[in-house]
Amino acid sequence: MEKKRILIVGLEIHEVNAIKENLGFEYLIVHYDMLPNIKLIEGELFVESSTIPDKYLLVDKVIFHGIFETDFDFITLLALWNGPCLPNATGMMDLRNRIPGLVRALNISKFSGTKRGMLINEQEYFTDKEVVAKWGIWHCGEDKNKFTGEWKSNETSVIEEFIEGEAVRIMLVGDKYWQIKLTGTNWLKSIHNEGSWEMDVDADLLQDSKNLAKHFNLQTVGVDYMIGLDGRKHLLEVNHIPNVTVFPFINQAYIEFTKNWIQQSVNQFKQLTD
Rank of each mutant, 00 (worst) to 15 (best):
207 Q>W: 03
201 V>G: 08
229 L>Y: 09
200 D>W: 00
200 D>C: 08
245 T>F: 09
207 Q>T: 13
198 E>I: 12
245 T>W: 04
246 V>K: 14
237 E>L: 10
213 A>T: 10
235 L>R: 10
235 L>D: 02
230 D>K: 09
196 S>R: 01
229 L>V: 13
206 L>R: 05
245 T>G: 10
207 Q>E: 15
223 V>D: 07
220 T>G: 07
223 V>W: 04
201 V>R: 05
234 H>S: 13
226 M>T: 06
210 K>Q: 14
240 H>D: 14
228 G>S: 13
241 I>Q: 07
223 V>M: 05
239 N>A: 02
200 D>K: 12
199 M>R: 12
223 V>A: 04
230 D>I: 08
220 T>P: 04
244 V>M: 13
229 L>T: 15
197 W>H: 14
201 V>Q: 08
201 V>W: 00
226 M>I: 12
232 R>Q: 15
236 L>F: 11
247 F>G: 04
204 D>E: 15
207 Q>V: 05
243 N>L: 02
205 L>K: 02
225 Y>I: 00
211 N>K: 13
197 W>L: 13
225 Y>P: 02
211 N>M: 13
221 V>W: 05
198 E>P: 06
226 M>G: 02
201 V>P: 08
227 I>L: 08
246 V>G: 01
242 P>K: 05
221 V>M: 12
196 S>I: 07
243 N>W: 04
